[in-house]
């Protein structure tokens, strides 16, 4: 197991170096000069411009900047945001809980609905249930989620007025020393109505974000289940007269779920990308929205740090999924 892990890690190092080069290089290529944007219509003299550029470290050779960038990374220093003058890592960490909360709820939702949908569709292959659920899954899979979000807002916030327009919790509630995970904060605060309020705010964004992963998981579960149901040992079990329910729950499900685990893991990247759109639509104060804002403000260090951290998170999750997969399925480990 240790060797497996080390092997995986060794494999990740070149990827990681590539990621730092991409994050650094891309951001250098961004047109537009943040110093000019800061100066605005007032204009800026060439001398003052040079002075500010030097202060921000843009005047040194590019490779020096890169090496320093990587060196600082190892000390957990992702640089300072140009707009807020605060450490990029701090900014990321204050906003990350909002994205994690949204993402986790979405993935959970997707799993809890997607797996049963797929499994039952496989068992009842060809039935109306199979057709409807797989049709729905395909629609979900094809959904432009930014539009889906707008539709839900029109219906539930605009017309029915069941859910709030945006935000994470009613402004009435306030947790001075909160963790940033609103559901948890609301629950431990013990204030009546806080948790309900947080849930009400979370419903629409998480449904929107869960749509595509749910469709993918349902489709994947169905085909994995079909494959397993076709295998000899399941047929044998059936032939032995075990009830279909027992066959499915004991034998088939466990084996069918192995590839599904990978699928769920792979959805993290999808959820990250989806978060950019979902957070924009719902004004959700997470990192997706922060990245968009940073790009438009040409906040180099924030874009750079954000790219790197998001890629890092995706890599970590993929690693964990790989390991989990190795644990569930020993054949992989030794091959």
């Amino acid at each position: 197991m240790i060797r497996f892990l080390l092997g995986k890690l060794a494999y990740l190092i070149p990827t990681f170096i590539g990621i730092t080069i991409v994050a650094f290089g891309f951001v250098r290529l961004l047109p537009g000069d943040p110093v000019l944007l800061l100066a605005g219509e007032r204009g800026i003299t060439p001398e003052r411009h040079a002075e500010l550029s030097a202060q921000l470290g843009f005047d040194r050779p590019i490779w020096v900047q890169y090496l320093e960038f990587v060196g600082n990374l190892f000390q957990g220093d992702f640089g300072l945001s140009i707009t807020t003058k605060k450490p990029v890592l701090t900014e990321f960490l204050t906003l990350f809980p909002a994205t994690i909360e949204l993402g986790l709820v979405a993935v959970t939702l997707a799993t809890l609905i997607g797996i049963p949908l797929g499994v039952f569709a496989a068992i009842k292959r060809g039935s109306w249930f199979d057709q409807i659920s797989m049709g729905t899954a395909l629609v979900g899979y094809s959904m432009p989620i930014f539009w889906w979000g707008l539709l839900l807002i029109i219906l539930f916030s605009g017309i029915l007025k069941w859910t709030p327009v945006s935000g994470r919790i009613d402004l009435l509630y306030f947790f001075p020393n909160g963790t940033g995970f609103m559901l948890y904060d609301a629950l431990v605060s013990g204030q009546s109505g806080a948790f309900t309020s947080a849930v009400r705010h979370l419903i629409l964004p998480s449904v929107v974000l869960a749509t595509i992963p749910m469709a993918v998981i349902a489709r994947q579960s169905r085909s994995a289940m079909l494959e397993v149901l076709g295998e000899d040992y399941v047929r044998t079990a059936r032939a032995k007269g075990l009830s279909p329910f027992r066959v499915v729950s004991i034998h088939a499900l466990r084996n069918a779920l192995i590839p599904v685990v990978t699928t769920i893991g792979l959805q993290v990247g999808v959820v990250m990308a989806g978060a950019i759109l979902t957070e924009t639509i719902f004004s959700w104060p997470g990192i997706g929205k922060w990245m968009i804002d940073s790009i438009s403000r040409r906040d180099y260090p924030s874009v750079q740090g954000g790219l790197l951290l998001m890629a890092g998170v995706v890599m970590m999750v993929n690693l964990i999924v790989d390991l989990l997969y190795g644990v569930i399925n020993p054949r992989i480990r030794h091959s």
Binding site: I153, S157, G158, K161, V165, S166, G167, S283, P285, K289
Partner: peptide, 20 residues
């Protein structure tokens, strides 16, 4: 006094109309 930061003007308007 509470500042509810809402970058999108359309959402700000909806929040105002919804009494948020």
């Amino acid at each position: 006094l509470v500042f509810a930061i809402t970058t999108d003007p359309a959402v700000r308007m909806q929040k105002l109309q919804a009494g948020e």
